[in-house]
Design a binder for these strands. Structure first.
Lengths: 244, 244
DNA sequence: CGTCAGTTTGACCTAGTTCAAGGCCAGTGG
DNA sequence: CCACTGGCCTTGAACTAGGTCAAACTGACG
């Protein structure tokens, strides 16, 4: 499949989880002018302070939105997976308040703000779908606040894994209970606010309790029920089953 | 000033920080049908799982959006101050993923989703302003993730105080460097993910370092520069100086 | 004057950090 | 084909920020 075809499929899937599009709306989306670029693992896509003029649609790989604190500590404040629009906010907010970097190598499509705005003006239902998408992103951020603020390490790590599994499943990237998990333990520490050492011990505990298996970038959630129970996971904040 | 007049003033101020409204747009907002209600401190406005049919506009007092974890711990994931629309997401997301409760007594205006949607359809610039508002809310959540994940208690508490001071100033609720601060130390603990005991010790430290003064609900930021330095505060994520 | 909610302080405890050292692989170059 | 290197993972030991428990203190309010 070509990159353009893939991107079309991905963006349509995203919006059509919210509602069926008309043929006209579908065409409007498919005729958006895309610039497709490949990025390497670790490469930055945009930096804090940038004034973006294009939106980012992630086709393949994982992206981190992260912030750095004067002490040098880095915190990943959101993870984007294929199909996500990790910089939709750039459309209406004039500068980046965080960095955007690849967690893996990947493929990204850029769409100029102008063409998106034109499309939104003409097709209000698409605007509504994207607005909704940014609201879900906000809901995820709030759950992350909860996660790092009150859950102990074991539950916290388990919660992140549950969320990623469910989100990846929604875009067809989970087979059975297996999915690619490209984060290093240090990166998982930057997600959870834990040290890499403690992430390691926590993963070891999850493994020896028979909840997960993780080797060479391949994750299996062996017992999803126990994972949900251990982490207090409730997927309703992801709004996946919520066609409007 | 009547509640209706107050609500008009507040909502217009909010939107007009983004751009000047036309007389027609202004009228559309002023003629929204409002139901105004008073709430007591501690009263809940909406609960997790509710399917809201109205939006909430906060006229007076503070609102917390909070989540509860099975262990019983409560986390405040966002604070709304006068002029905020703490449940704008209800417009497009079908259920509440968190609770909404008063941190103080206050006055709230409810607006039916239907009338808002009608207005947004007719006045796209208003839609854009509200969308933008929900994007800023997302940016604040991400900063909170950073705050609770990586900052130590002293910086973390100071950061919350800086943010609230700036946001309150933007709606005219800071005089000099003084503002009403109605949170108990336990509630501040629920914001920062710290125990009430440690919040107390941290506030004592901030006081004795001459950064703040806080007595009987009245906060003074004595040295804002030092507060910013201590907490690594950078207001750009609030997008207050960012007319589109 | 008693009560109740919130604040302050002390003493002890623990989850998670930090530092340090090995181990394991995959890729590279001789 | 093997040795070397560099990320990443794993483990141990010592340390600390912040939690928990408990008690005293303050002020507002009926």
């Amino acid at each position: 499949m070509s990159d353009a075809a893939r991107s079309a499929k991905i963006i349509l899937r995203k919006i059509e989880t919210v509602f069926r599009l008309s043929e006209e709306e579908r065409q409007a989306i498919l005729s958006l002018p895309l610039t497709i670029r490949r990025f390497d693992r670790g490469q930055d896509i945009a930096r804090q302070g940038d004034k973006p003029s294009q939106c980012v649609l992630l086709l393949e790989g994982w992206i981190a939105r992260y912030k750095v604190v004067p002490s040098g500590k880095r915190q990943i404040v959101a993870i984007a997976i294929p199909g996500d629009l990790p910089d939709l906010q750039g459309l209406y907010l004039p500068w980046m308040d965080h960095d955007l970097g690849m967690l893996t190598k990947g493929i990204v499509a850029f769409v100029p703000h102008g063409t998106i705005e034109a499309m939104l003006g003409q097709y209000p239902r698409i605007a509504k779908a994207l607005w909704r998408d940014s609201l879900v992103e906000g809901a995820i951020s709030r759950e992350w606040v909860l996660n790092v603020a009150v859950r102990e390490a074991y539950a916290r790590v388990a919660h992140v894994l549950c969320e990623l599994c469910i989100r990846l499943r929604a875009v067809g990237l989970v087979h059975g209970n297996d999915f690619d998990f490209p984060l290093t333990q240090s990166q998982l520490g930057e997600v959870t606010g834990l040290s890499n050492v403690h992430v390691n011990r926590t993963l070891m505990a999850l493994r020896s309790d028979g909840l997960i298996s993780l080797e060479r970038g391949s994750m299996t959630i062996i017992d999803f029920d126990k994972m949900m129970e251990a982490s207090g996971f409730d997927e309703s904040y992801l709004y996946l089953a919520a066609a409007a």
